[in-house]
């Protein structure tokens, strides 16, 4: 599954679309400490418990697909990873930083973790290029020229370089979501979270987004994807995590999960979803 990063990367992975895995400090085989660690995480919304005793380790470079029926807590869980939701008990450690009340820690984690939303959430009053460069300029304090070069590079990698000066409203849904992916990548994160990235798209545009995600997976980016697209999961995932009612019911590699899942509920879910 690709050679390790002997091609000399300094510091951050500056080009996750380059060939070969982007690896910091060693390959996953020799460096087993998880890049994301959830321990006994519980989350309540008032009396309702959204997450119960969630334990999950994700290694660097691993591609994890989270699936399950709606209301199972999949989105809640990944939103806890970049503190868009606050977990109530347990601990979440991302790239060595524990997520707690400290704003400094939260900001450090958020610059390290990119997120792609179901509703794209592009900034409508900025052009596509400005959407991409506002993070690097304002948060990473990059110079404008350098940020624009970065933005154009990622716009190119998601195959829509000509849209740089358009406004989001002028793009199709698939293009907007690709801009959203490029925007997240412009912050040069080590982890990418995807919260049902294709659920709001018309069917003919789903593939253009999934293709970009498959390419991204091929570069060794750590990805956590909440999705119903099982074809994508089969192709790309190292592990499928099945959740129901706020708990992780089963976690297994795709070959095992799709052919012979351990739990009855996973089997039921697969029957429903794979019928089409």
């Amino acid at each position: 599954m690709g050679a390790d990063g002997a091609a000399g990367r300094q510091g951050r992975a500056s080009d996750p679309f380059a060939t070969g895995r982007a690896v910091q400090g060693g390959s996953p085989v020799t460096d087993p400490a998880p890049i994301i660690a959830l321990r006994d995480v519980c989350k309540f919304y008032g009396p309702f418990q959204a997450l119960t005793d969630v334990n999950l380790d994700i290694r660097q470079g691993e591609r994890v697909v989270v699936c399950g029926p709606s209301g199972s807590g999949k989105s809640t869980m990944i939103r806890c990873i970049n503190r868009l939701e606050e977990h109530d008990t347990g601990s979440i450690i991302v790239d060595g930083v524990e997520l707690d009340e400290e704003t400094r820690n939260i900001r450090a984690v958020r610059q390290d973790v990119g997120m792609v939303f179901q509703q794209f959430n592009l900034f409508p009053h900025l052009t596509v290029l400005e959407n991409l460069t506002i993070g690097p300029i304002r948060v990473r304090r990059m110079g404008r020229a350098q940020a624009e070069a970065l933005g154009r590079k990622f716009l190119d990698r998601v195959h829509i370089p000509e849209q740089a000066d358009k406004y989001p409203a002028q793009l199709s849904g698939g293009q907007q979501q690709r801009v959203a992916i490029a925007r997240a990548l412009c912050m040069e994160p080590r982890i990418m979270l995807f919260d049902e990235p294709t659920s709001a798209l018309d069917p003919e545009m789903i593939n253009e987004v999934l293709d970009v995600m498959v390419e991204l997976a091929g570069t060794g980016m750590t990805m956590v994807v909440v999705t119903h697209e099982m074809g994508f999961a089969r192709k790309v995932a190292d592990r499928i995590v099945f959740m129901e009612a706020g708990r992780i019911v089963e976690a297994a590699p795709p070959e095992k999960f799709f052919s012979a899942p351990d739990s009855e509920r996973a089997r039921l879910f697969l029957n429903q979803i794979l019928d089409h």
Partner: peptide, 23 residues
């Protein structure tokens, strides 16, 4: 202003001040 945009701003690491000023 839709909540999603403010979440996107925070997700790329913007603080409250930047979020207000630019988004």
């Amino acid at each position: 202003i839709p909540r999603g945009q403010r979440e996107a701003a925070r997700a790329i690491g913007m603080g409250w001040g930047d979020e207000m000023r630019f988004v």
